[in-house]
Simulated assay, not measured.
Amino acid sequence: MENYKQILVAIDGSTQADKAFQQALDLAGKYQATLGIASIVDLRSFSPNVSYDGTLEKEAMERVTTQIKEYVNQAEKAGVPEVKTYVESGNPKRLLAKEIPEKFEADLIIVGATGMNRVERVVLGSVSSYILARAMVDVLIAR
């Protein structure tokens, strides 16, 4: 296993993401690495039938920002030397596989295993599978 210096973890409030975060905390502590915490508001999840004036996105971004602050507090209490956060809206697959890891200069990406059932994975494809297939750095899938 490499001596990772820039560990990026994706969170979404799920149990799987919490497991990924715990793995990231352990490794960031072990390697004294910088921890990047990323959460993406997937705009595609908003129904086109709802009158959309930006309020839904704003509320989602506020929830995610509050959630990320809790993760940052945990990381600081665990002694992680440096924590950076990424709260963005858009396509989580693209953002987490390429854009944010490049910006953060990640050498490891940690994501939770998908919570989708078999049919959902076939139709939608999981974010974790997409990242695993396309990331240019090591990927750890937490279960």
Rank of each mutant, 00 (worst) to 15 (best):
V111K: 01
E76M: 08
A10C: 10
K58E: 15
D107H: 02
G13H: 04
K93H: 11
R134I: 02
E120I: 04
I131H: 01
I7G: 04
M136N: 12
R121D: 08
G13F: 06
A78Q: 06
I7E: 05
R134K: 14
A10H: 06
G29H: 02
G125H: 09
E102N: 15
D107R: 04
V50P: 01
Q67G: 14
K5H: 12
T85Y: 04
G115H: 03
A10G: 11
I68P: 02
T65N: 12
F104R: 07
Q6R: 14
M61S: 12
A75F: 06
K103W: 02
M136Y: 10
R44A: 14
I141V: 14
T114R: 02
M61N: 09
V72N: 03
S129N: 07
Y4M: 07
D18Q: 14
S126I: 09
S126E: 07
L95F: 05
D107K: 08
I68A: 08
E76T: 14
F21V: 02
F46Y: 15
G115V: 01
D138S: 14
G13L: 02
G112P: 03
Q23D: 11
P81F: 08
Q16W: 13
L25H: 09
A135I: 01
G90K: 01
L140Q: 02
L140A: 01
K58C: 06
V127W: 00
E102S: 09
A60C: 09
L8C: 06
A142W: 08
G29F: 03
V123A: 07
A97H: 07
E99D: 15
V41Q: 04
D26I: 10
S51G: 10
Y86G: 04
E88P: 00
L56N: 09
R63V: 09
R143E: 11
L132H: 00
I7N: 04
V119S: 07
S45D: 09
S89K: 15
A113L: 03
D138W: 00
V72C: 05
E62D: 15
V50E: 08
S126L: 11
E59L: 14
E57I: 08
L132K: 00
G125T: 07
Y130C: 11
D42L: 02
E2G: 10
K30T: 03
T34R: 15
I40S: 01
V41Y: 10
A135H: 04
N117G: 15
I100Y: 04
S129Q: 09
R118S: 13
E2H: 12
G29S: 08
I68G: 06
V139S: 05
T65S: 15
E82D: 11
E99P: 00
G115L: 03
I40Y: 05
L108P: 06
K84F: 03
V139P: 05
